[in-house]
C-alpha cells in the first residue's frame, strides 16, 4: 500500500475575484522509502497539493477527491483524528523558514511542542529529543534555546527539518525547502535531506520548480502544469528522455549559479503559465508548445502510457492520436 495516494484531486479557491481552480484532477502515489519529485512553475498547483494533504488550505476552499495517507482518507477525517495525523502521519517542511517559525518562542520549544502534542513524551524528554534531533541535522544541541532570529537561513531550515522528523512521520512533504537559500547552503541542505531520507527510510514528496535539484534527490518525478500532471515516471528517465514538450523545455534549460532568471522562468520558454481562472481550451500547454499541431487547441489530453512506469499527457505520443480522436476530450 502506498504511503500517500491521491485520487482525482480537485482544489478550487474561493476569492474575491471568483473561483480559482488550482488543482484540476491529480492522481499520484508515493511509496514507502521513495522520493517523488513534483515540479512545475509558480501557479501550477503544486504547493496547493502540499496544503491539501494535511487540510491546511483556507477555510472555504473546495477540495474534492481522495487523499489517502496510509490508507485513511484525510479529507473525510474527523478533526480529532486529523490533528493526530498531522505531523505524526505526515509532516511538512515549508519554504522560506524565514517566517515559518514562531518569532517569540525558542526553537527547542517549538520542536518539543510537536512531540508533546502527539503524546510521544513528556516535556522534559521532549526537549532532550529536540536536542538530539538538532544534532541529527547538523546543529549543536544547545541551539534549542535559541530564538529563530538568532539563526541563519540555512540553520532555520535545518530546524524545520528536525521539527518535521520529530514525530517519526511516514511521509515528509518538502515544499520548496531550498528556494529561499543561497546556492551553497542549498546544496548542503539537499544533501542533508537525501541522507536523512535514506537513513530513515522516509517517503518524501519533494515539491520544487527547480528540476535540476530533483534529478539528484528524487526516485520518481511528476511534472505539473496548469493544475494537472502532464508527465510522470522514473526520475532519470523523465529528465533525460522527456516525453512531454513541457518537460523537455524544463529539463533543457541550463541554469547558471545564482541566475535569478532561472528561478522565475525555469523552462526558458516564452510566455507565462496560464491564469488558473483562464486556462486555454484543449491542451493547456498548446499556446507555448513548440511542437503543437492541429488537434492540440481542441483536445485536452489525459495521461497516456509512455513507457515502462511512465505516463505523459501529450497527443504526440505514438498510437495516442487515434485514441484521442476516438474518445478522449
Amino acid at each position: 500500500m502506498s504511503v500517500l495516494s491521491v485520487r482525482d484531486l480537485h482544489v478550487t479557491y474561493q476569492t474575491q475575484g471568483g473561483e480559482v481552480p488550482a488543482v484540476r484532477g491529480v492522481d499520484l502515489d508515493v511509496e514507502r522509502g521513495e522520493v517523488l519529485g513534483l515540479a512545475g512553475e509558480s501557479g501550477c498547483g503544486k504547493s496547493t497539493i502540499a496544503g491539501a494533504v494535511l487540510r491546511l488550505l483556507p477555510p472555504r476552499t473546495k477540495v474534492e477527491g481522495a487523499v489517502l495517507l496510509d490508507g485513511e482518507d484525510v479529507l473525510t477525517m474527523r478533526p480529532g483524528r486529523l490533528r493526530a495525523v498531522r505531523w505524526a502521519g505526515a509532516s511538512i517542511i515549508f519554504q522560506g523558514a524565514m517566517h515559518a517559525l514562531n518569532p517569540v518562542r525558542r526553537v527547542g520549544d517549538q520542536i518539543a511542542e510537536t512531540i508533546v502534542i502527539h503524546d510521544q513524551a513528556d516535556e522534559r524528554d521532549a526537549r532532550m529529543r529536540a536536542g538530539s534531533l538538532l544534532e541529527q541535522v547538523g546543529l549543536p544541541s544547545r541551539r534549542i534555546d535559541d530564538y529563530p532570529h538568532e539563526l541563519s537561513g540555512g540553520q532555520k531550515q535545518r530546524v524545520m527539518i528536525a521539527m518535521a522528523l520529530a514525530c517519526s512521520p511516514s511521509l515528509v512533504i518538502a515544499d520548496e525547502p531550498t528556494t529561499a537559500l543561497d546556492v551553497m547552503v542549498e546544496a548542503q541542505v539537499l544533501a542533508l535531506l537525501k541522507s536523512l531520507q535514506v537513513e530513515l527510510g522516509l517517503a518524501m514528496l519533494f515539491i520544487t520548480h527547480d528540476l535540476s535539484v530533483l534529478v539528484e534527490v528524487a526516485d520518481r518525478l511528476a511534472i505539473m502544469y496548469a493544475g494537472k500532471i502532464v508527465e510522470d515516471g522514473p526520475a532519470e528517465k523523465v529528465f533525460f528522455e522527456p516525453r512531454h514538450p513541457y518537460t523537455e523545455a524544463l529539463a533543457a534549460a541550463f541554469p547558471e549559479i545564482g541566475d535569478q532568471r532561472f528561478r522565475h522562468n525555469p523552462s526558458g520558454l516564452g510566455g507565462d503559465p496560464p491564469d488558473p481562472q483562464d486556462v486555454p481550451p484543449g491542451c493547456p500547454f498548446h499556446p507555448r508548445c513548440p511542437v503543437a499541431f492541429e488537434p492540440c487547441p481542441t483536445v485536452d489530453p489525459r495521461l497516456f502510457p509512455a513507457g515502462e512506469g511512465r505516463r505523459a499527457a501529450c497527443l504526440l505520443l505514438e498510437g495516442t492520436l487515434t485514441e484521442a480522436r476516438g474518445g478522449a476530450t
Partner: peptide, 14 residues
Amino acid sequence: GDDFITTARAKGVR
C-alpha cells in the same frame, strides 16, 4: 497572515 500560524496548524496544534 504569517506562515508560522500555518506551521502551528500543520503540527497538529488545536
